[in-house]
Amino acid sequence: MEHEAEANGLSQRRIRVELGQLKLFAKAIGETNPIYFDRAAAEAAGLPAPLAPPTFSYSLGVLAFGSESWSEELGIDPEHLLHGEQAFESFHPIYAEDELLLQRRVVDQYEKKGGRLSFVVVETELTNQRSELCVRARMVGVIQNA
């Protein structure tokens, strides 16, 4: 079953976690704890490198795939798409300089309200250079049909 799903619509990208991106992300969300953007502070806290904040894995998906890749695949205008739900399961931390493999697939599509709302569920798994599954992320997008 798993192999069928992989053969059908699996997209893969590789991305390196850039410290500069972590710094900008931290500034944008008002994160002041330096373990998330400063190498010396991270090491002083016993971390191998600055730590990615809890939702940064979503941004890694956006950065790796482009925000519109899967919506184009599905023929959805991304400007009509709203972010309905987001979920994360975390198994290992993600650090600056990690080399991640991102694997993404559409796992469900359905309609509500007599077809006026369409939903798409996209799952992304992030695996690090030690082949450890770090995060499984699930996004529910909502499309308002005319």
Binding site: I29, G30, T55, Y58, S59, A87, F88, P93
Partner: peptide, 25 residues
């Protein structure tokens, strides 16, 4: 996702870094 980032910051500030095992909003 900016709102969810702030929720994550609240949880991590309280429980510690890398403590959120699973969450959804």
């Amino acid at each position: 996702m900016l709102l969810m980032a702030q929720v994550g910051k609240m949880l991590a500030d309280w429980a510690g870094p890398s403590t959120i095992r699973r969450w959804n909003v």
